[in-house]
Design a protein around this nucleic acid. Structure first.
Lengths: 226, 226
DNA sequence: TTTCATTTTACGGGTTTTTTAAGGCTATTT
DNA sequence: AAATAGCCTTAAAAAACCCGTAAAATGAAA
């Protein structure tokens, strides 16, 4: 599960639109998937757990507003980012949309540049990158764009999983991450790995970082603290 | 030389339109040249290196979209500003146009005011004069206008893909490019090439440049660093 | 068409990363 | 004190990934 690979689900009934958006998002390094109606959107939202859902308002089966309402009513999707697409003149939808809990709103016809900037603005606001994703904590700097870690003025080279693990923990200093949470975030929901895998990675991190910043909470999980 | 000193190439098969646009742009201080079909547009783009190209979609020889695609496929024109002109109702073209990599889109009948504001907005956004495309990093110079690379005082000749790959990486030194990003940017996301293709090009680059400036990050991608 | 350069594929080999496994340690409970 | 649970440590197996080379395919020029 990559760092940049924010997953975006795009739902629209017009294949052309779908394609343009997908093309442009993938160019920027996002992972994408698509749905062509409301029901499919709901299903894929559940199965793929995207970070952002771009919803056309006018769709067969269920329209975007309905989809949004259903999602928002479930705790698991309370924080998913949602952008509505809609016809220019459709002012009412705009209002309804934001009322329903959308995070932003882009009107058709779509300009890819506009959409992209909204998307990245949204991620930035939600503190999920790309862009301002550097974590800086006292003597430790973690830069996922450069894939570099600076600990006490010396550059530390981390392998992929190590890096992602550190990034996760450091993203919310002081907060405890359950083992399960870590597995889901770093390894992905569907990947099954043995129970000791996390330990080993934690150990390597502590070793490589050379500073005591990861605390074990027995029977619960780990937390990052400086 | 006008106060703005920006060169604009206008391509349209209707002399009237050509004249109106040219007149208005020159009033604002732009240098202009014109073409009346796709082939002429391509030729003049190459010979005159304009900063902005205004392309009518419907043209003899080659239509605007074709011209745009051809230009965009060449590194030298990857960043030229392009505005499409088209008939109002032509929604499909709009989509196709932006997909093809146009920067903006103005529909006929043209209002000079609208066009001028779009043009200046575009330049404001782009905010870069000619010559800005050269990348200069310590002992390495990459010039996409001349298609040349200077590494440690010796001229290195790169093939097209090699050059584009290097240019991409060097455009953001230190930043990691995922394999997917590289594929999308250099190859285009509709082209399907095997996974090892990037490796080979990276290898050739390292070989030809004779300097150790490309770093592999296993499982993630590559980055350029000096 | 032929020729030549570029681009892509194929694949063995080697390296790094990731995972598993097993024994040891420590704190907590009985 | 013994038993237990949970994590640490280490080592080694397994998997993933990339390099280098060479050959095949593609495309451009003569």
């Amino acid at each position: 599960m990559g760092l940049k690979g924010k997953k975006v689900l795009i739902a629209d009934d017009e294949p052309d639109i779908l394609e343009i958006i997908q093309y442009n998002l993938e160019r920027e390094g996002y992972e994408t998937s698509t749905a062509k109606d409301g029901d499919e959107a709901l299903a894929k939202a559940k199965s793929e757990k995207p970070d952002l859902i771009i919803l056309d308002i006018m769709m067969p089966k269920k329209n975007g507003i309905e989809v949004c309402q259903i999602l928002r009513s479930q705790p698991a999707f309370k924080d998913v980012l949602i952008i509505f697409l809609t016809a220019l003149s459709d002012e009412t939808s705009h209002i309804k949309g934001l009322e329903t809990g959308a995070d932003d709103y882009v009107s058709k016809p779509i300009s890819p540049k506009v959409l992209l900037s909204r998307v990245s603005a949204l991620f930035r606001r939600a503190n999920k990158g790309p862009g301002d994703r550097v974590i800086q904590l006292e003597t430790l700097t973690i830069d996922p764009d450069r894939y570099e870690v600076l600990a006490n003025t010396n550059n530390v080279t981390l392998a992929k999983k190590e890096f992602e693990l550190l990034y996760l923990l450091a993203s919310k200093p002081g907060r405890v991450f359950l083992r399960n949470e870590i597995l889901n975030q770093v390894w992905g929901n569907d990947v099954i790995v043995g129970g000791r895998t996390i330990d080993v990675h934690i150990r390597k991190l502590r070793q490589k970082l050379g500073m005591d910043c990861i605390t074990t909470i027995k029977g619960v999980g780990y937390k990052f603290d400086l």
